[in-house]
Design a protein around this nucleic acid. Structure first.
Lengths: 342, 342
DNA sequence: TTGAAAGCGCTAACAG
DNA sequence: CTGTTAGCGCTTTCAA
């Protein structure tokens, strides 16, 4: 027996399908007579009626579904940053009564992910989480595509352009400066920057900030003290070996641009039998303070990732539900969480 | 300008909407003349046509969407077990061209999560991941509900019943026995079991296995050496303090039922200034070997969570696409991963 | 081979 | 105030 539908109920009660729809959905409005409404409700219950959300969505032209787009090759769920953001997203979703559609990279065979998302019309909007595999150009392109396709979206992380979009991030230049300030205040003068790739927007921002901070104290960030690992453990080791080879000029503190790099650094330190912060101080960007199981506990400039997810989702849903609200750009404050590494 | 639809193309080319649908979707069948087909394709491309998946889904009565149901209060994305399973799920999803719908607990205001999922008809099937908040009764109830609602599903973890459903898990009794075997082979005779709650199905299975293993060597598992923390750090400390208070009878090895418990144990050891495995050996269940950042590295009986996700998803999709295939129950093998704790 | 018509199950606009 | 008529955009019969 197929699932009962509106018209089945209608038939049984002797009214039109529309009437049933009204009675069921428009709650306490007086569109349907009290007696009939009661009867309808009774029969619906009795027949075990559940609406077909698909049909509803088609008719209403909204699904209460938000799509998630994460440009990342690696499995996204292992990524702590993404996990945090997702939790924030979930919390807002739950509150506002939406659900999340996680697109599988290249969902349909033989079709690019982005195409698939564009085409879909399955969601009311998209949440984009930028990752380290996004160049500035990628991001800009995506924004343009989304705009011409008239798809509402909200972006998290790593956009420093000026297009009027819904965006939540942190001020990484400011963060870089804060990193410099902090390390200098701890007496460091030889500060190195371990980064992923010079082509990343965040790299540029952090570098700018670091330089600004160092300059205030008459210090600088020589190219030799900036290392880009391309997120490769081996390259990280090579860079670090070089830094530490020169006894006179070795850095006394290292600032890492993200968690992955911090982990590589930890691996290195362990492998070389060094100790933090005795042999070198470490300040990390973006590491969660609580719930973190890393040892030693990193001293970090923590990015409020959970909140970012929440906020981005709120902004997107607002944009969907009230088309008049203007796109917003929000930069959240970061926070210094003391660990034992700096 | 609204998104172009099938009928728009039809009008421009001078054919019916149906013809366009055929030309676009039914590939190389000869339903449409070659010339017309080419023309249609051209115009579709030119107008930037993308099908409305929603309408398509309604007509075809399938969405290529799988729903995820995780009975857990805490944010699911922080849970490493779930993250692993999700990654496996994703990998199959990607391969088979499906996407994942993550229901927000209580997606719609004023409606229970389960109801919402039942009603939805938005997905072609459901993937359930059981967690430690599921009693055997919960699981059974869910299965019954799903079956009467005629919803296809595939279940991961912690079902030891006999209903013919798609299920992927591990044999926890066997795992418990293996734990006992291993620890005994290392010379331990006083083995304690740190668990979450005696009401959990997994607890019963592990206990059974441990007892079986211990019995083979004339040993036993006295109630005093079974501790249930209810996943509360304080209670864990209390239990451990009791175990270690008695110099003569203190356990020389502890088997932990899951990762959460292991973490509590690590906290305890750190807090009390003890060291593993010098003061006590530790064997953990279910901890991932690689990519794990725990120190010391736990010796674990690792559950192939990623594979479980993959397999469950494959089974579900098979069930959806070929209704004739019978439900399958798969128990995957676990694996001993040597760490430094036992 | 091609086109028209009849749904998929629901909601919104419209008459009565 | 109530009930009916048209769609939402696509697929799939069924005639022609």
């Amino acid at each position: 027996m197929a699932a009962p539908k509106l018209s089945d109920i209608a038939k049984r009660v002797g009214v039109s399908a529309a009437a049933v729809s009204l009675a069921l959905n428009k709650g306490e409005t007086t569109r349907v007579g009290a007696a009939k409404r009661a009867e309808i409700l009774r029969v619906a219950e009795e027949m075990g009626y559940y609406p077909n959300e698909l049909a509803k969505a088609l008719a209403e032209r909204k699904t209460r579904l938000l799509g998630l787009m994460v440009p990342l090759r690696d499995p996204i769920f292992f990524n702590q940053f993404i996990a945090q953001a997702l939790s924030g997203i979930q919390s807002t979703l739950m509150q506002r009564g939406y659900n999340l559609l996680v697109y599988s990279p290249s969902g349909k065979p033989g079709r690019a992910t982005r195409d698939q998302i564009m085409e879909s019309r399955f969601t009311d909007g998209l949440i984009l989480i930028n990752t380290r595999s996004c160049t500035a150009q990628d991001v800009t392109d995506t924004i343009n595509e989304l705009n011409t396709a008239q798809i509402r979206f909200s972006m998290i992380n790593s956009y420093y352009g000026r297009a009027p979009i819904n965006y939540v991030g942190v001020d990484d230049a400011k963060l870089g400066e804060a990193a410099a300030d902090y390390l200098i205040s701890k007496g460091h003068r030889k500060i190195a920057f371990l980064s992923g790739s010079a082509t990343l927007p965040v790299h540029a921002q952090l570098t700018k900030g670091l330089q600004r901070g160092l300059a205030k104290h008459g210090l600088s960030l020589p190219p030799a003290r900036v290392g880009c690992t391309q997120y490769d453990g081996g390259r990280a080791f090579k860079i670090l070996d070089e830094w530490f080879a020169n006894q006179r000029n070795r850095p006394t503190a290292i600032f890492t641009a993200d968690e992955q790099l911090l982990l590589h650094l930890y691996d290195y330190v362990e492998a070389r039998g060094m100790s933090v912060p005795d042999d070198v101080s470490v300040l990390a960007r973006g590491n969660v303070g609580s719930g973190d199981r890393l040892r030693p506990r990193p001293t970090s400039l923590v990015i409020p990732t959970f909140r970012m997810g929440q906020l981005a989702t709120e902004m997107l849903i607002d944009a969907i539900e009230k088309p008049k609200v203007k796109p917003q750009r929000v930069l959240l404050p970061f926070e210094l969480v003391a660990g034992s590494t700096a």
